[in-house]
Amino acid sequence: MTALGRFGGAVLDICRVVGALTLFCGAVLRALLPPRADRVETWRALHRVGVRSLPIVIVTAFFAGGIAAIQVSTYVTKFRAYEAVGWGFGFVTFRELGPLLVGLMFSGRVGAHNTAELGTMKVTEQIDALRILAIDPVHFLVLPRIVAMLVMMTLLNVIGNVFALGGGMLTAYAMVGVDPFVFWNSFTEYVMLADFINGLVKAAAFGLAIGIVSCSFGLEVRGGAPGVGRAVNSGVVVSAVSIFVLDYLITAILQ
């Protein structure tokens, strides 16, 4: 195949994915009028998505905070601007590093699991069984999962911020010798509510994107177990790309 043919094929693949996601978003929006997410399934999804993701989010956030502190410390030591550590850390972590890393972890853990679960339900005819029992899979399976991912990604980001702050403070003290009180003062003095809200908006958008992408790829599975594997792989890749595109757009809009 010529290079032009391969390029054309790749463009068509992208169009196919974007088209399928757009149609899926349309189905989700239709299901929201009026909103009829299954209550029991929504609680189940909130528990599974939120509580079980907590340990991995805590670990990720703690180290993300540490990494941010190390990076900031390089310049702090150079310019002896110890009182800027808290600000630099907070700005980078709350606005960017926290939501981005938690989002990618969330996509890898929750999104992949969700695609695999829905894909398996599709190939074992459980989705057809639901439809025959007069249950709309979008109301019963998709809406609860999207709501859970949107809510929990936002909440987990808040919890992650707390642990990132702890990680940053400890690292700054251990690596550069910045007093935790100096760190805290700098943090509270210069990090604005807007920085925190910026991160929350991103987290909510990432949660929504991961929910839509993972559900869409799960329900589109074809071809048995290998099809489930392919869908999980594609779902994680598309979720990651969506996270970066959304991050770019939100950063540009809220700047």
């Binding site: 398996t120 074992t124 005819e125 459980q126 069984a129 439809r131 025959i132 029992l133 709309d136």
Partner: peptide, 29 residues
């Protein structure tokens, strides 16, 4: 959806809901 409520279907691959117990599966409809 209304018409399907009149149908009982037995699937080749069982199509039982993995996360529900047998009693919950049967009582689901």
């Amino acid at each position: 959806m209304g018409v399907r409520g009149r149908i009982g279907m037995i699937f080749q691959n069982y199509a039982l809901f993995d996360y529900l117990t047998v009693a919950d599966n049967i009582g689901f409809p």
